[in-house]
């Protein structure tokens, strides 16, 4: 269970999170929406323990993301908004992930394969030299391979072509089951069937929080 209670965060004079309350049960799958600057990324960073709250409280399965970051991050697989220009080689990045998260490197390779990214072809390249789409695929593969209890995705599909997006959603559907998902997106129609709750943020507040179900099958809307 991810519990966010009365979370307030200010940057300078700017109130970016203004008393956010939110509970995410394990297995719940949420689309987090809202205009640019609404505070979505900030909220996610608070859950990951990057920011100290000015007021309020965050717990992930009872653990404090700042004071007990290892416990919290063991449960969360995260994909950032834009792939950072990491200078490690692809092989080194995979080694870092596999050893720190205690998973098999082979699993990352398999997940990448499912997205049609052949990791071996890029083994000795620095990560930042991959194309935008490849970087994103690798970060997705890493997150899926970690099988976090919670997946937290910050607009992970921006650089992906439609086919890769479909592959990603399909794989996520296969995996989801008991995994919770918090998916920041601007294109909720693509997530039909994957998502069962929709949250809308504006100016640092949750303004809408309701169950979500779309009748037509996923992808149909975009194909019409």
């Amino acid at each position: 269970m991810i519990e966010i209670a009365q979370a307030r965060k200010r940057f300078g004079g700017n109130v970016v999170l203004d008393g956010v309350n939110l509970q995410i049960a394990p297995g719940e799958r949420i689309a987090l929406m809202g205009p640019n600057g609404a505070g979505k990324t900030t909220l996610v960073r608070v859950v990951l323990g990057f920011y100290h709250l000015d007021e309020g409280r965050v717990r992930v399965d009872g653990f404090d993301p700042v004071a007990q970051r290892v416990e919290v991050l063991r449960r969360i697989a995260f994909i950032p908004q834009t792939p950072p220009p990491i200078r490690l080689l692809v092989s080194e990045l995979i080694e870092y992930v596999a050893r720190s998260s205690q998973i098999e490197a082979e699993r990352i390779r398999e997940e990448a394969q499912a997205l049609e990214l052949v990791v071996e072809e890029h083994w000795q390249k620095p990560f930042f030299k991959l194309s935008g789409g490849m970087k994103q695929k690798l970060l997705i593969a890493i997150a899926l391979a970690r099988r976090g209890r919670y997946f937290i995705f910050d607009e992970p599909t921006a650089n992906l072509d439609p086919k890769a997006r479909e592959l990603f959603y399909k794989r996520l559907e296969e995996l989801s089951g008991e995994h919770g998902i918090l998916f920041i997106t601007h294109r909720i129609e693509e997530l039909a069937g994957l998502i069962d709750r929709k949250i809308y943020m504006e100016l640092g507040k949750v303004v809408e929080d309701e169950p979500f179900a779309m009748d037509c099958p996923r992808g149909a809307a975009s194909r019409m």
């Binding site: 990951l48 990057f50 970051r69 290892v70 416990e71 991050l73 950032p80 950072p84 220009p85």
Partner: peptide, 15 residues
Amino acid sequence: ESAILEYMLSFPISL
């Protein structure tokens, strides 16, 4: 600045 830190520290590793 380049958000490398954000990604590298999103794994279960202590500061």
